[in-house]
């Protein structure tokens, strides 16, 4: 019995240590609001890759947004739900090749999970807040978005066209002729 309790205690202590050593899963909002708490710690961060990968020698800058649009942008038909929010991540150039689709008007970007060290003011990168990623994986692939104008767009265009033609016509009729 004593031996079983001792083993249980060891297992519990080991489990505690392993969870403390594991990367904490955090959002950009938490990191920006509490930078001092997380500075220098290993974090796991998941967000949609937007824009482009900016290659600088052996490393790449990625921008990962973990906002409401990571699951679907306004361009894909979602309603406005606030500003974008995300973090800049520095990744090894080779590792970053797994990211192939970047979010913009025409694309919903790959959703990427990175783990690495969070820097509240990285001295290596001009004081920027960043994550130096040591691991990166795509958790959801991006997609091409389709944008077909709706009927209401054409109706409004028609109304504006009629109003403009009427106004220009009225002006041309009334203006003085030299």
């Amino acid at each position: 019995m004593k031996r079983s309790l001792f083993m249980l205690l060891i297992v519990a202590v080991c489990a505690g240590f392993s969870s403390a050593a594991a990367a904490a899963d955090v959002s950009s909002t938490v990191l920006i609001e509490e930078p001092a708490v997380w500075d220098g710690r290993v974090v796991t961060f998941t967000g949609e890759a937007v824009g482009e990968a900016m290659v600088r020698g052996d490393e790449v800058w990625l921008h990962l947004n973990d906002d409401a649009y990571a699951g679907g942008s306004i361009a894909s038909g979602a309603l406005p739900q606030g500003y974008n929010s995300g973090l800049a991540v520095v990744v090894d150039a080779e590792d970053a090749r797994v990211v192939t689709v970047f979010g913009d008007y025409r694309h919903q970007g790959d959703v990427v999970e990175v783990s690495g060290v969070f820097n509240a003011a990285c001295p290596e990168h001009g004081g920027d807040m960043d994550v130096h990623a040591t691991g990166i994986r795509v958790v959801r692939e991006g997609a091409v978005l389709d944008h077909a104008p709706g009927t209401s767009s054409f109706v409004l265009l028609g109304i504006a066209f009629a109003a403009a033609v009427t106004a220009v016509g009225a002006y041309l009729i009334r203006r003085p002729r030299d």
Partner: peptide, 22 residues
Amino acid sequence: KTAIDFATGLLACLAAGFGLQA
């Protein structure tokens, strides 16, 4: 879609501008 939105805006400006001048 964006082009249609801007065409609508442009025509609205022309309607207001020429309308006021008339």
